[in-house]
């Protein structure tokens, strides 16, 4: 009985839960801010990365190589190391404006750099899944390569990759907690402070609840989109 009581007290004490909420919520607002800005940037930059990686012809080869190198580097490096590079490295360089950004901005940069590499691959898969005959049809009508991409290929590709893309965004939302390692006072960091101060772990549960609460709607929305597409494809099969 004592052990059970201990567990309940250390992890699930409702009183402490209520006490910890304002602190952790203050931190979580920073997580929200970082995720929204990073997601908006990733949506655009990852598409640009995917398009650059798919550019045809020998003239575009240096760009393609750069895009591949970027993807390899940021997909292969643990986020925490990218965070140290950016969060400690850039201010240390004393490069004027780049070295004087707010720590939250560094957090946004870290997640944007890493997730652009991931989501770029998602977009690329989508672009490659659009049948070559679509591009041929667009080009045969006199549209340029970029016009064919913009009006014909990319719109179809984006529709197809929305579910995996949202899945990556769920990962990004959780990884906002990682930028606490460079000193961002977000939910996980504030939960840790509270935990140390209060001598229990209830504040972590509070932080976990916040993250889960915003992830569930996104997860259900993703499920909904997948189901919708499957229904449409079944309808077409008849």
């Amino acid at each position: 009985m004592h052990a059970l009581h201990q567990v309940l007290h250390q992890f699930f004490n409702p009183h402490t839960f209520t006490l910890a909420m304002p602190d952790v919520w203050a931190g979580f607002q920073i997580n929200l801010k970082i995720m929204v800005i990073a997601e908006a940037l990733v949506l655009v930059l990852a598409l640009a990365l995917a398009i650059v990686r798919g550019l045809p012809g020998p003239a575009a080869k240096p760009l393609r190589v750069l895009a591949i190198a970027y993807t390899d580097f940021f997909r292969g490096t643990p986020i925490i190391i990218v965070a140290f590079f950016i969060g400690f490295g850039l201010p240390g360089l004393q490069l004027g404006f780049i070295s004087n950004l707010s720590i939250i901005t560094y957090g946004v940069i870290v997640l944007t750099l890493v997730y652009t590499a991931y989501v770029g691959e998602v977009y690329r898969a989508g672009i490659e899944s659009v049948h070559a005959s679509q591009r041929a049809a667009a080009r045969s009508l006199g549209l340029t390569y970029m016009q064919a991409m913009r009006y014909v290929v990319v719109p179809q590709a984006v529709r197809r990759v929305i579910p995996p893309l949202l899945n990556d965004f769920i990962g990004l939302q959780k990884d906002t907690a990682l930028v606490s390692v460079i000193g961002v006072a977000e939910a996980a960091a504030l939960a840790q402070q509270f935990s140390t101060k209060n001598g229990d772990f209830v504040s972590y549960l509070v932080a976990a609840c916040f993250f889960i609460l915003i992830t569930i709607p996104l997860a259900r929305f993703t499920d909904h989109l997948v189901a919708q597409r499957e229904a449409r494809e079944r309808a077409q099969a008849f």
Binding site: Q134, A137, A138, S140, L141, G142, Y151, V152, P155, Q156
Partner: peptide
């Protein structure tokens, strides 16, 4: 050129299919 598999753009209406190239090209 017209292809065996039609290759209409599935995300556009018939009208958008027909007007895309005249407008953009």
């Amino acid at each position: 050129i017209v292809f065996q598999a039609y290759n209409l753009f599935p995300h556009m209406t018939v009208l958008q299919n027909v007007t895309l190239a005249p407008r953009k090209a």
